[in-house]
Design a protein around this nucleic acid. Structure first.
Lengths: 247, 247
DNA sequence: TCCAACCCTGACGTAGGGTCAGGGTCAAGC
DNA sequence: GCTTGACCCTGACCCTACGTCAGGGTTGGA
């Protein structure tokens, strides 16, 4: 007659494991001695070894009991099934490895390298880190919500760095985040942005879809000055459009 | 301002997932509206997308927060670490697959094919299924406790089938399990076994190690007749040994 | 006004045990 | 006879990353 620790040592498992198998009904509870200690027979050793053989092969505990009493045909079917499950898990982990290998750094988390390059270009122009962070988040939202418009967006953005007027605007935009909404520099920036929109045929008053709404929210949340800037720009654009219809 | 289900849908996760991230502190709890509903900003969308990007790559939730704020060097180190962990899991599952592929049927669970072959040979001799089951368990115990003595044991067993006297004994042994301990056939079987031991120079009275103790237990547990048989055989062997010393 | 579709908190379940907490038992040495 | 260390017991909480009720309040459209 063996104690629980002797049984466990013989089968190469922990005492806790044996008790767990009792708990889930995989190994029957043996008789107790006068002290209430469990006393095991040699049969229990054999049972436990057979259980561990399956468990060590990755068979879920819940299926082991059936497997131990299965006919060869059922057994083979169950083994095939469990093997497929293991393969599925392996595939998933392999996919995880593939993805994680792509995670070069924090910024490249979601974004294609062209975008990361553009962000670094903004940094080297002297645009503040805070503004770059907002720009990054805007691209993350684009990527998640309108991935199809990413290629065009990337091309436009990359091309814009060739225009000195536009790059000067980027610098001013970066600084403006911290300005008071009624700072006179805000008004001058609004005029510059308005002129830029007219020149590049953009219209900040057109109805916004999900993606651009979130983009606007992200910017407005970050800067009171920009709440005013975007409001005024949209207002002016609406006026221009109305005037265009009238004329 | 988004509701929790809008946020979840935007980031491609379930509402439960968002709440879980709040619970573990990965995503900050947002302000509530008058009804107590959570209201999310665009920033939350960005945060959640960044979290999911790492989670989808197999990064444990507990490590994501640190990773989101890590410098490139730390980030690279952490990614290497996590990748190694994923590889470890893959290796383990692959080992499981290898093992499970070896599990041809219930009996071959632990045992080498030669043993399985011998068990089937016993069946074809007409040995009862119950006796074969005990024999199987004896081999399982041997395998687990004294694997080094398996080859010799297998050779002896395999050779024994060439001896008609021994195979006849196997048959009698199989039938004897169910006999009453005081059945006269038990006495005749004891005589036969005693003669066999003498002939083959075995000694069932020698001190037993762990493995043979368990083997004896397994047999005695299964059959009262065999409790007596083993007792008497050991007694006689002891007597023979004493006589040998005296003479 | 009603109904579906939301939202809330709280709690249990998953697989396979690890790790206390709190208390009883046994065997050996002094 | 007493102590000490090694066992044994039950019960309960911990881990991952959420899924899935249960029970109840809110919102918005027909």
């Amino acid at each position: 007659m063996l104690t629980i620790s002797q049984l466990a040592a013989t089968a190469g498992v922990t005492v806790r494991t044996v008790r767990h198998y009792h708990h889930v009904g995989l190994l029957p509870e043996p008789e107790r001695d006068a002290s209430g200690y469990r006393r095991y027979s040699a049969q229990a050793v054999v049972d436990l070894i057979r259980i561990r053989t399956l468990a060590d092969a990755g068979v879920p505990l819940a299926r082991i009991d059936a497997l131990l009493h299965a006919q060869p045909a059922e057994f083979a079917a169950a083994v095939t099934d469990i093997d497929a499950e293991l393969q599925r898990k392996i595939d998933q982990l392999t996919e995880h490895r593939r993805r994680i290998a792509e995670l070069a750094s924090g910024e490249a988390l979601v974004l294609p390298p062209e975008v990361v390059a553009n962000l670094n270009r903004m940094r080297s122009l002297g645009v503040s880190e805070r503004a770059v962070r907002i720009e990054r988040d805007v691209w993350i939202l684009m990527q998640a919500l309108e991935p199809h418009s990413m290629p065009q967006g990337i091309r436009d953005k990359t091309a814009s760095f060739d225009d000195p007027g536009t790059t000067r605007l980027y610098l001013a935009i970066g600084q403006s985040l911290d300005w008071d909404p009624h700072d006179p520099r805000v008004d001058r920036l609004i005029d510059d942005l308005d002129a830029w929109e007219t020149e590049h045929e953009r219209d900040s008053s057109r109805p916004r879809n999900m993606a651009s709404q979130l983009v606007f929210s992200r910017i407005v949340e970050a800067s009171p000055a920009w709440q005013r800037i975007l409001d005024v720009l949209a207002h002016r654009a609406r006026q221009r459009r109305t005037a265009g219809h009238d004329g």
